[in-house]
Design a binder for these strands. Structure first.
Lengths: 255, 255
DNA sequence: GTGGTACATTGGTTGGACCAATGGGCCAAC
DNA sequence: GTTGGCCCATTGGTCCAACCAATGTACCAC
């Protein structure tokens, strides 16, 4: 091989699909959460059961009690266990105690991709976003609409979707949530976003190309500005239905 | 006072509004969460800021580092901070990072009752429950309907609402969520319930009396059984609108 | 300016200790 | 025989004092 001048790769402009991503560092307590949660959803630990005492459990897991306790804090926050001083740690029924953050946990820690749960989440997204659009269209201030238009105008002019497109999408959605004047829309949207974002393999592929997206959003803003609530909703609903079809097709191909 | 035979109070049948409730024990780490979260939402700690190192922070709070770390775990789970080994603890923007569980935290730790947020939550409940009813009516199996009917029949025959009525309501809702076949409805409903449940002062008063509730639910099941989706939705929507009016009135009277 | 190195800082983990509350078993008093 | 007091082992809650591992910085040699 002849020696030749090497080019310097600009790390901010890597070829599509070859982006670097941070090396993931696992905390001991996080692994404990995954392991114990698996035991719970598999039924090895049933609702109502009392777990071994912290000291024993820590020993079984070859982990310090401190780490185990940090894991238990997180599981308690997810509604998987309840901790009663002097008594012990008890398994709760996640079906009646856990919230959306548990779904996020299940779908973002590859605990075994639950296809049905992901489809369920997509349905919630549709229900939720539809209501959001409707309220946003009804209540958006002139200022909100201005910002929405700006964001829609900032889409990259490529045919090739990527991280940037996804970020812009979320920015647009976030602004829509703010336009509803209801902060809970914002918070719920965050969780939905996290679920989709972490499934990057799927995510980058179900989104349309930037041009199409920008067009869609521009039409949406236009409808909102004219007070055409129903039109705004229908524009959006159609797009989401297409997303869902793509997602379903992808999942079909995976199994 | 003349001595007289004392009657023994049956603790399971206390007079209405005089139920015992467990003495609440505060964990140090929980108080730390409240205190630090207050500083974040008040703006004393702004998004992007780096918090003092764990060792210093623990000292300032007169708390052991272990307890502080447990608090940080929970705050991390709520999306309030991100922890980067070797670098420090950084404040995140809860508007773009936190989920529904943060709303639950805000509304259940009397961090200063945020009336608007509570009304927002009520709106989400309406949006959410409406979609749930619609899907449940479309998809409910014969078995689901049977269980729903059973639950509706188990309402206490009093005029006086209480804890039992609330529990039954949730049981009915849970069954509806299951009837949709979408587990995410179930999980989201859990969070909504927790928010309402912990506001017991409000909760017990916004619910109608058991007889009315039972009647409502029976009519609902009937509509579902006959496949009258729209009717089911409208029955339910009307009830929720009434709930929301009562809630709004109550909040108006509070401030 | 490129890469290597030493070092202080920061979160992650560990082991061991003590406190406080719980539940169960035992026993005396009424 | 029921009540209430008491002891005691168990369990979660807290604290302390280390050490490990990764990060960022400053400095240096090439």
């Amino acid at each position: 091989m002849a020696k030749q001048a090497a080019k310097t790769v600009d790390p901010t402009k890597l070829p599509h699909g070859a982006e670097f991503q941070p090396v993931k560092k696992t905390r001991v307590s996080d692994e404990v959460v995954v392991q114990m949660t698996n035991l719970i959803i598999s039924g090895a630990f049933a609702a109502g059961d009392r777990l071994p005492a912290e000291r024993q459990l820590a020993q079984k897991l070859s982990v310090n009690r401190t780490s185990l306790r940090e894991a238990l804090r997180r599981m308690e926050a997810m509604g998987l266990v309840s901790i009663r001083p002097g008594e012990g740690v008890f398994v709760e029924d996640h079906n009646t105690n856990s919230g959306l953050e548990f779904v996020k946990f299940l779908l973002t820690t590859n605990i075994g991709l639950d296809k049905q749960l992901l489809l369920d989440m997509a349905e919630i997204r549709r229900v939720f976003a539809t209501a959001m659009i409707e309220l946003a269209a009804k209540r958006a201030s002139a200022e909100s609409i201005k910002r929405l238009r700006e964001i829609a105008g900032e889409y990259p002019a490529t045919d090739c979707p990527g991280r940037d497109t996804g970020e812009k999408d979320f920015e647009f959605f976030h602004e829509l949530a703010k336009a509803t004047g209801n902060r809970v829309f914002m918070y719920t949207l965050n969780t939905i976003r996290d679920v989709l974002k972490n499934l990057s393999v799927l995510y980058y592929r179900i989104e349309g190309d930037p041009k199409t997206a920008a067009n869609l959003y521009r039409r949406l803003v236009e409808a909102m500005e004219k007070g055409q609530v129903k039109k705004a909703v229908s524009i959006f609903r159609r797009q989401m239905e297409r997303d869902d079809e793509k997602l379903a097709a992808l999942l079909e191909g995976l199994s």
